[in-house]
Nucleic acid binder design. Structure first.
Length: 550
RNA sequence: GCCCCCAUCGUCUAGUGGUCUAGGACACCGCUCUUUCAAGGCGGCGACAGGGGUUCGAGUCCCCUUGGGGGCGCCA
């Protein structure tokens, strides 16, 4: 249910918001002021409660500053990569700047190692930034753990102005409140026990050694409107907003404060984040209003869900960017897929490089509906991008994988680089992931003892050893052992002995590779080399005799 | 319980009141090409959640219902 999107007081005033330290694109959104009677002070807050259309916001696309603000408490999650990409696109598509801010206020769980890995994963995707902990910038520091003095100052301001108050309620009391609310089927909000405490009360409670948190005193009677760039205006009635906590009892500020304050102080013009943040937004607007700080534009992107339509998590398998990388996905495919979760070009094009995304991106084309992660589609895009990436780059990735899978050593890979290049080349479009090289071509790198059971049944007949021996004799005399040579030799055998091609080709493939699928037989045999080929043919003939197939 | 978001094929989506017997892509199923597999080509399956309005006319606008999701934390 939405309230009217404008108020009478709104129409009367268009007072501009407080200016930041340096020039920025002047907000063209009408501002209006209303006053708030706090317990100890009378403050004026600027609130945007006037409506405007989303396209109007979208038109202000100069001097854009966006930010990606990961919390280094884990690896870069797929969903976070999605919002990082959109932050990057919103800025880069309009010549704007990207900031990387590390939100490490959760000191328990944050580590420098995760911070490093997140930055590595972003870099791998091709998402770069202009300002950040590693680069510096005019609005640093870029780690929240190094900005505590800034938060302290803002918290003091809120407390002295009366926009916030100290709350001495114990966790037990709050739990009881919650339980009662649940029973009475009321919304879970703070009951306001400490709302009207005076500074004298605070002193008394402090003397008793009681800890306190700090809550924002929500302004009475005023709705807060979030102007979302892809959803339009979202109105939160005053009683839908809680007197939320933004300073913990240990004195540390929470995300609600640090995130909002930093966005404003760092002069972020467009906050691009997941839609799970929508309900945080009115609270953050309230903080900024109470502080007299500029409010950025907000853009809440659709969330990504798992197959069961719940928020994508570990339960759904791989969720970290680095996991996909390990599974053999290639960065352009990831980016391409990620971009289409929330955006699309409105026509039938489906392959976009990061550069092409930048050149085609538009905020109007963002979609609102949550999307479900589709592994098959990622694989499809990956196959395309493997085929359309510089072969030398793919070769490097294949070699990296081969080493990890212990199919080659770094030394042998270096010595046989040209040979491996040829192997990758004959794989053609068969690789959906880099790792598929193992499933598809492990026989190039190691011997095997098993033959595909279906193939054995279909192609290893009683007469097969005889044919294989015939082939073996011919091939062992072939020189040079080339694709063309093998091709010609085999066809000669077929003609001379009136053998149908199927009787030669299928058993031979099975003998050489153990598989019933793969690249062209002649080129495969040539790459395997005469020695290996002959050896495997001999071995297969023996195997068939030993196993006496039907 | 309260607040908020979302709603076209299984999935990603096109569609901005008439051109929609709803288009594309993935997946799936045929056929074709072919020494196998993959790729390619051709074809098939398959959706406007329901109900009320508004309108000459609704997938497209409004309302309700339903469904799904997110949030309501001294996490971010």
């Amino acid at each position: 249910m939405r309230a009217p999107t404008s108020t009478p007081s709104c129409a009367a005033t268009t007072s501009p918001p407080p200016k930041g330290p340096t020039k920025r694109a002047a907000p063209r959104i009408p501002e209006c002021a209303f006053s708030l009677r706090g317990a100890h002070a009378r403050v004026t807050i600027h609130a945007r409660v006037c409506s405007f259309s989303a396209p109007e916001a979208a038109m202000k696309l100069e001097n854009i500053r966006t930010r990606f603000a990961p919390s280094p408490t884990g690896l870069l999650h797929f969903g976070n990569a999605n919002t990082a990409l959109f932050n990057w696109l919103v800025a880069r598509a309009h010549g704007g700047a990207v900031t990387l801010r590390i939100e490490d206020t959760d000191t328990e769980r944050s580590t420098r190692d995760f911070e490093r890995k997140i930055m590595d994963d972003l870099a791998w995707l091709g998402i770069d930034w202009d300002e950040g902990p590693d680069k510096g910038g005019a609005f640093g520091p870029y780690r929240q753990s190094e900005r505590t003095h800034i938060y302290r100052e803002q918290i003091d301001k809120l407390l002295t102005s009366g926009a916030a108050y100290r709350c001495y309620c114990s966790r037990e009391q709050l739990e009881q409140d919650r339980a009662r609310q649940q029973e009475n089927k009321e919304s879970f909000q703070y009951v306001g026990r400490c709302r009207d405490l005076t500074p004298d009360d605070w002193a008394r409670l402090d003397a008793e050694g009681k800890p306190f948190v700090v809550r924002l005193r929500k302004p009475a009677g005023n709705a807060v409107t979030v102007h979302d760039m892809i959803r339009g205006d979202i109105v939160f009635e005053a009683d839908a907003i809680d007197d939320f906590i933004f300073v913990r009892s240990n004195g540390e500020p929470t995300f609600l404060l640090t995130n909002a304050v930093d966005d404003s102080l760092m002069q972020i013009t467009h906050v691009v984040r997941g839609e799970d943040h929508i309900s945080n937004t009115p609270k953050q607007i309230l903080i900024l209003n109470a502080l007299g700080l500029p409010v950025p534009q907000y853009m809440h992107t659709a969330i990504i869900l798992g197959k069961d339509k719940t928020k994508l998590s570990k339960r759904h398998g791989a969720v970290n960017v680095s996991q996909f990388r390990e599974q053999g996905f290639v960065a352009p495919a990831m980016v391409n897929y990620l971009a289409f979760l929330g955006w699309n070009p409105k026509d039938e094009r489906e392959f976009f490089s990061l550069e092409e995304l930048k050149n085609n991106y538009s905020i109007e084309a963002m979609s609102k509906n949550p999307s479900i992660f589709d592994y098959d589609r990622l694989r499809y895009l990956n196959q395309h991008w493997i085929a359309h990436t510089d072969p030398e780059r793919i070769l490097d990735l294949v070699i990296d994988f081969l080493i990890k899978a212990e199919l080659v050593t770094p030394q042998s890979a270096q010595d046989n680089r040209a040979w491996i290049r040829d192997i990758v080349a004959i794989m053609g479009d068969r690789l959906k992931t880099i790792n598929d090289i193992e499933e598809l071509g492990d026989y190039f790198f190691k011997d095997f003892d098993d033959y595909h059971p279906k193939g054995v049944k279909k192609y290893f007949k009683e007469s097969t050893p005889e044919h294989l021996e015939l082939i073996e004799r011919t091939l062992s005399e072939l020189d040079p052992f080339t694709q063309e040579g093998v091709d010609a030799a085999l066809h000669r055998i077929m003609e001379e002995h009136e053998l149908p091609p199927a009787k030669v080709i299928h058993p031979l493939r099975l003998a050489l590779t153990g598989k019933i699928f793969g690249p062209g037989l002649f080129e495969l045999a040539a790459l395997l080399g005469k020695e290996k080929a002959v050896e495997r043919i001999r071995k297969a003939a023996q195997w068939i005799s030993d196993n006496n197939p039907s």
